[in-house]
Amino acid sequence: MGFFSRFFRIREQDSSSPETTWAVEDNGSELVLDEEYASMLMTEIDIDAAIISHEGWRLQLQDMVHGRSSEVTRPERICQDDRCDLGRWLNGTGQARLGHYPAFGMLVARHRYFHQQAAAVITCFQAGDQTQALQLLNGRCRHASNQVLLLLKELKRGMGQ
Rank of each mutant, 00 (worst) to 15 (best):
G2P: 14
F3C: 00
F3G: 00
F7W: 11
F8T: 00
R11P: 02
R11S: 04
S15A: 13
S16A: 14
S17P: 00
S17E: 14
E19F: 13
T20S: 12
T21M: 03
A23F: 11
V24H: 07
E25F: 12
D26A: 12
N27H: 15
L31S: 10
L33H: 02
Y37N: 03
Y37K: 05
I45T: 07
I45Y: 04
I47A: 00
A49K: 12
I51P: 03
H54E: 01
E55Y: 03
E55V: 08
G56P: 08
G56V: 07
G56F: 09
W57K: 02
L59W: 02
L59V: 02
Q62D: 04
D63W: 05
V65H: 05
H66G: 01
S69V: 02
S70P: 00
V72Q: 07
V72E: 12
T73R: 15
R74D: 12
P75L: 10
I78V: 14
C79S: 14
D81G: 07
D81L: 01
D82L: 00
R83V: 09
D85C: 02
L86A: 07
G87K: 08
G87R: 03
G87E: 11
R88D: 03
W89G: 07
W89V: 09
W89F: 13
L90D: 05
L90Y: 04
Q95P: 00
A96Y: 10
R97K: 14
Y101K: 07
A103R: 02
F104Y: 15
G105F: 11
G105W: 04
M106N: 12
M106Q: 15
L107R: 08
V108D: 04
A109E: 15
R110Y: 07
H111G: 08
R112P: 03
Y113E: 12
Y113S: 10
Y113F: 11
Y113D: 12
H115Y: 11
Q117G: 13
A118R: 02
A118G: 09
A120M: 14
V121A: 14
V121I: 10
V121P: 11
I122C: 09
T123N: 08
T123D: 15
C124Y: 12
F125P: 04
F125Q: 06
Q126T: 14
Q126C: 11
G128I: 08
D129Q: 11
Q132M: 10
A133E: 07
L134M: 09
L134G: 01
Q135P: 00
L137C: 06
G139M: 05
G139K: 00
R140F: 13
C141F: 00
R142S: 06
R142C: 04
R142K: 14
H143N: 06
V148Q: 01
V148G: 07
L149R: 14
L150V: 05
L151R: 07
L152P: 06
K153W: 02
K153L: 03
K153S: 04
E154N: 13
K156D: 03
K156F: 01
R157Q: 14
R157T: 08
G158Q: 05
M159L: 15
